[in-house]
């Protein structure tokens, strides 16, 4: 029987990535929850076996095993770590994944679920930093264009000459072209 998984993640696009990958691997995602949805209460109701939780979710403390002290939860859940190997745990924490399983579930059945989640969390992280880099590059290009326009007006030179001047200045001062562009724009604003 395929494992039933709850995904707890406020990041909706990431949750969608994980859900899609889990389904493709033959697991059944029975719920995708945001923070504050008290996943512990849903475990019994949804007959879930595994809960994949964003490591920074405040709900994690609620899932922590109360052992004999209490926690009257029909299906006691424990963090998937004790039986897992240290590399899996490190990879999970670094990717931002934590996993809870219904007590007694065999680690070899759970590990594939955790591995899928780790892979998708990583993929999402890469996508996001890639997006960040693209945005930064575009922003820098705009700055350089603007500074070039200022130089062309002030010096009455052509586009290539303005670009050459800026690049030389950047190299002489050992700073990035975007920083030089910023200074030119700021100076122009100051001088009106």
């Amino acid at each position: 029987m395929s494992l039933r998984v709850i995904v707890v993640d406020d990041e909706r696009e990431r949750a969608a990535l994980v859900t899609q990958a889990l389904t493709a691997n033959g697991f059944q995602v029975v719920a995708v929850l945001g923070a504050g949805a008290c996943p512990a209460h849903r475990v019994t109701e949804l007959a879930a076996d595994v809960i994949i939780v964003d490591i920074d979710s405040p709900d994690r403390d609620m899932l922590e095993d109360m052992r004999r002290v209490t926690f009257d939860c029909g299906r006691p859940v424990v963090m998937f770590a004790q039986d897992g190997n240290p590399e899996t745990i490190r990879a999970a924490v670094e990717a931002g994944v934590s996993a809870y399983v219904v007590d007694g579930l065999k680690p070899e059945r759970v590990k594939p679920v955790v591995d899928v989640a780790i892979a998708r969390f990583r993929q999402f992280q890469e996508l996001r930093s890639e997006l960040g880099r693209t945005k930064a590059t575009l922003a820098e290009r705009k700055l350089v264009e603007k500074a070039k326009g200022i130089l062309m007006r002030q010096r009455g030179c052509g586009e290539e000459e303005a670009y050459r001047l800026m690049r030389k200045m950047a190299m002489d001062r050992k700073v990035r072209l975007a920083d030089i562009a910023n200074r030119i724009i700021e100076a122009a604003q100051l001088l009106g």
């Binding site: 994690r60 403390d61 922590e64 745990i89």
Partner: peptide, 9 residues
């Protein structure tokens, strides 16, 4: 956001 997160990190 949680003690669990502090512990694991």
């Amino acid at each position: 956001s949680s003690w669990a997160s502090i512990r694991d990190k």
